[in-house]
Every structure is written in structure tokens, then in C-alpha cells.
Amino acid sequence: MTSPATTGPRGASASNATAPPTRTPPRRKPRVPLSDRLLGMWGVLVFLFLFAPLLVIVVHSFNSGRLLVAWQGFGFEAWEAMFTKPAIGNAVWITLQTGVIAALLSTFLGTLAGLALARRAGKWTPWFSILLILVTVTPEIVDAVALLPWLVFLGADLGLGIFNDGIVRLVVGHSLFATAVVSYLVRARLVGLDERLEEASADLYAPPVRTFWRITLPLTMPAVLAGALLSFTLSLDNTVVSAFIQVSGSTPWPVYVLSAVRSGLRPEIASVSTVMLVLTLGAIALVAVVLKRSGDSTTQIVRTLSGD
């Protein structure tokens, strides 16, 4: 049961959640109906459920025992192992390199594709959209088992030595889904923008290239940046495809963890994972800030970040 007093501000800003600070909600009615309280309690329970495993991982990174699962005592051994074990440092380094290169590549491909989709729709558009949808819905495991023989074919049978390089393989595997994501983002951004700005630039005798650099690109920039950061985090997260196409010697961090699942999980898995979690969340927070500053509402940001 919502009274007009409490619903007024929400109704006014339902479509745009960036409410100015002056519009603070007035004091709520003291009596909250039981059903709403039950909803709130359910919400809290679900948030506890969502955070339980993350909390467990962070706590267990201070486990001084030999195995991650069995808690022995409090200690910083797992955090020290991060610096003393070269295999871990190497895996993290490979992951970061791959993430940056995959992000740059996907952003380049996706931005151009998004531009073309938004500004030059033609007969090819539906086909390209279908392709992007297929890339998005194909299970990772199918991508993985498909890329493995294909990269072997390219590298060994066709003699393209570049595809025997560990990082190149990982970048190829990580770039597919990310390219689709960036295209969606850039296309959505440009569709929402007025094309007449670009036409005006052309009417004022700006050559196309200058129009691109001075008008189109700055306007698209938030989507491009968000896409790049999302691609980076997607690459950091990628486990299944990496596990199949990796070359020994350039094992990325998630694959290192996956092989540890089979051979025995040690606490340092938790400590490095905590660091990676902070890194990922930093990148995601940056995406939210970039989108917010470019004028997206909370709802739009949610849609962007959930891949909708």
C-alpha cells in the first residue's frame, strides 16, 4: 500500500533514476505493510546467498592449512605464496596480457561493426545480427571444442605459425563474444544519438574523416570505453575456451585454477582470486562511472552490464 506522498518522487523519476539531489524522498509512512516487509527480508536473504561463496573465498585466503577446503588456522602464508611461486605470477601475467590485447582487438572490431550497424543498415544487417546472436548464445564449451581443432588446423596444417603462440590463441578465443558485446553497446549508443549532428558537420564542409574524429567518435566514446573494459573483464573471466586452446607454458590464471580443482585446491588460489576479484570490480565500477557520466540511467547501465 503506497501513499501518494511516498510514490510521488518515485513516479516522477521512474524513467530516469539519476534524480537530482534536491529530490530526496519524504519520510516514509511509519507502517510498512507485512507483504513489503516479507519482500525486504527475502531480498536480504538472497543477497546473503549471493555473497556467501565470495565471503568464504576471502576468508579462506587466510587459511594457513595445506588445503583450501579444510580450515586449519589464521595465517598469511597464502598471500606470501602469491609472490614466491613463479607459476602463479606467470599465470596472472599471461591473463593480464591477454586481457589487454583481447580488449583492444574486440573494441576495434566491435566499434566499427556497431558504427556500420547503426548508421548503414542494409541487406547485410539481418545476417550480421544473426551472426552476432549466434556468437552470443553458443555455449562456451561448443566454442572451445570447435576452436581447438581449428587452431590446430591453422597452425599445423596450414603452417600459420602465429596460431601456435599461446597468447594469440587465447586472444582469438576471448575476442569472439567480446566483439559481439562491443557491437551491441556501440550500436545502442549511436541509435540513441541524433544523426543530424554528423550531417551538420558534413554540411559545414568537414571531410568525412574529420566528422568521424570530431563528432562521431567523441559521441560514441562512452560505449567504446565501456565495451573495452567489459571485454577486458570477460577475458579475465574466461575459463572454458582457454582451458581447451591454451598452449602449455602460457596458462592463464583461470585455467591454472581449473587444473588445481582436479589436483587439489590450495589456499593461495583464494588469495590470488581475491586480488583478481578486486581488479574485476574496479574495471566494472569504472564502466558504471563512464556510463553514468555519459548520461545513462541506472536502468540503462543495468541493461548494458547484464548483456541485455
Binding site: 565471503l55 573465498i57 577446503v69 573471466d237 575459463t239 585454477v257 582470486s273 576479484l277 552490464l305
Partner: peptide, 18 residues
């Protein structure tokens, strides 16, 4: 968003611990 963007494998390992 936080659990959604946390590493898929790592949060699953969290459940193994639980």
C-alpha cells in the same frame, strides 16, 4: 553485479568449500 562479475570458477569453488 558484484557476484555476477566475480570469476565464475572461483565462486563455484566457494560453493565447494561451503
Amino acid at each position: 553485479m558484484v557476484p555476477y562479475w566475480a570469476n565464475f570458477l572461483v565462486r563455484t569453488i566457494g560453493w565447494q568449500v561451503i
